[in-house]
Amino acid sequence: MDIIKGEGTTICWSDPDDMREWFAGKDKGLRDKVMEMREAVKTFIKPGNSLMFGGFGYVRTPVAFVHEMIRQEIKDLKLLMVPDNYIYGLLLLAGASSEVELAFTASLEVRGLLRGIRKLFETGKVKILSEWSLGSFQWRLRAAAMGIPWTPIRSLLGSDTFRKSAAMQVTDPMTGKPITMVPACWPDVAVVPVHKADKYGNAQIIGPLMADFNLVRAAKNLVIVTEELVSPEHVREEPWRTTIPHFLVDAVVVQPYGAHPTLMPTKYYWDEDHLYEFLKVTENEEGAREYIKKYIIDSKDYWDYLENKVGLKKLKMLEDIEEGFMEPEYPWVNRK
């Protein structure tokens, strides 16, 4: 059988039996996993790790966790940028990673493109190990969640996205037609924001689950960042709302407004002023450095950022917009 191999490489594939051994060895007991942000970053993020975040670009993203990573000056990460924008962009600008696999980057959709991040790729400062699409990458996570080494899919065929991926193409023995085989992906760490969780890690997400449904079962270590800590009884009253069961979770970090300035469905809207500032000032390296210093390095912790760089009034306003009580304003309209 002819096998066509993509030219890219992947850093999150393993033999499924090695992964079985990993998951078999984990303590899956019902135990309190609440942890301080600082400790969670220190415990779970190591240089060389492959890392994927839950949420979608700039919806339900673990900004608070990323702030702490930058404060701890974590380096040499391999980022799985599916779908990237704000937080992965922050890490790249902070020099936390120079090798990535990606499906989408450097865009705030209709708000505009992130020039500073594009430049990192254009100048070769950040190397792309492989190109993917959202569908193909999340199917890699599904394969990992099933404990299988690869899965056949019907996209990527005929494209240069395939040529630069780490997928393979074969003739399907059943139909005789060409088909794509994507390698499973087991990220070393996933950090997934949730709306509610109990101390054991039973968690509820509101709104689209994006790739998280598969990601939480693919990741070797899973940290959840919850807007709200609720009682175990609260979760068990409506178990059909649970999207992550406790034994998949390694740590529960509690951080209200932990996704600011990104959107938390049904809780708070995008901070459009902040995102616009980010878009503008990160066009050059100096602006990016100043942004990171002002908002992250100079903040003692995320609470300090919320209290002194964002403010209660702004947070309340973002809640009102998301609730539909207030009209959003888009500072970038007409200014592109």
Binding site: E122, S133, L156
Partner: peptide
């Protein structure tokens, strides 16, 4: 939607596929 110029030495790096490859393929 990936790159202007050669992929290895891009003139302009664009966002990449996102979900476009699946929308267009499937």
């Amino acid at each position: 939607t990936t790159v202007i110029g050669p992929w290895e030495k891009p003139l302009v790096r664009l966002p990449g596929s996102g979900g476009a490859n699946e929308v267009g393929s499937l």
